[in-house]
Simulated assay, not measured.
Amino acid sequence: MGVALREVLTDYKVPVGWDSLSGTAAIDGNNALYQFLTIIRQQDGTPLMNSEGKVTSHLSGLFFRTARFLEYGIKPVYVFDGKPPDLKSTTIAKRREIRDKAGTAWKVAREEGDVAESYKQARASTRVDEWILSSSKELLTCMGIPFVDAPSEGEAQAAFMVRKGDLDFSVSQDYDSLLFGVPVLVRNLAVSGKRRIRGRTITVEPEKLYLSKILEGLGISRENLIEMSILIGTDFNAGIKGIGPKTALKIVRNNAFQETLDEKAPDFDPEPVIDFFRSPPVTEKYDISWQNPDESALRDLLCSRYEFSAERVDAVLTKMRTTAGQKTLDHWF
Rank of each mutant, 00 (worst) to 15 (best):
D300Y: 14
I98N: 02
F277P: 04
I202T: 14
E205N: 09
G199N: 13
Y34K: 02
V79G: 09
M161Q: 06
K241V: 11
E111Q: 12
E307C: 12
D100F: 04
M228D: 09
V108G: 01
T104V: 05
L317W: 10
I226M: 07
I40Q: 11
S172V: 06
S192Y: 14
K137F: 10
K54F: 07
S22E: 15
K137A: 00
A116N: 06
R187D: 06
K208N: 00
G165H: 05
P47I: 11
G45Q: 05
F180M: 10
R222N: 02
R187F: 08
K246H: 14
L178P: 08
D287K: 03
K107S: 13
I132H: 15
D114T: 00
Q173H: 12
S125H: 06
L301P: 00
A256I: 00
G193A: 07
T90M: 03
T66F: 12
Y78F: 15
I240Q: 10
N50P: 09
I132M: 04
A122I: 06
F180E: 07
V115S: 03
G45V: 03
T126S: 14
P151C: 02
P146D: 08
P85D: 03
F169D: 03
G217F: 02
S134Y: 05
A315E: 14
E205C: 07
K264T: 00
R305V: 00
N30T: 02
L21A: 11
G29P: 08
R95L: 07
D235G: 01
W106T: 03
I274Y: 03
R127S: 04
R163T: 09
F257R: 13
L225M: 15
D176E: 11
R96V: 13
E295P: 09
V79Q: 05
P151M: 01
P270G: 09
T247L: 13
G233Y: 07
K319V: 00
R278N: 11
N30I: 03
V313W: 02
R65K: 15
T10Q: 13
F63A: 04
K120H: 13
L21Q: 11
F257G: 13
R196F: 09
E52R: 14
A4V: 12
A4T: 08
T234A: 03
G181M: 06
T323S: 12
I226P: 12
G82I: 01
K137H: 06
P266G: 04
K54C: 01
L70E: 07
V8P: 06
E7H: 11
K319I: 01
P266R: 05
D44L: 02
S172L: 10
L87A: 13
P281H: 05
T283N: 01
E97A: 14
D166F: 02
E52K: 14
G113A: 08
V313T: 12
Q42E: 12
K194G: 02
T322R: 09
Q291N: 13
L317F: 08
E52F: 04
S57W: 09
A190H: 05
A26Y: 07
T104Y: 10
T126D: 07
T24N: 00
N254P: 00
K264N: 03
R200Y: 05
T328Y: 10
I214S: 01
N31K: 02
L249W: 03
S172E: 04
A32V: 11
M1L: 12
C142R: 14
K208D: 00
P47F: 05
L178D: 04
I243H: 11
I92G: 06
A315S: 15
K164Q: 15
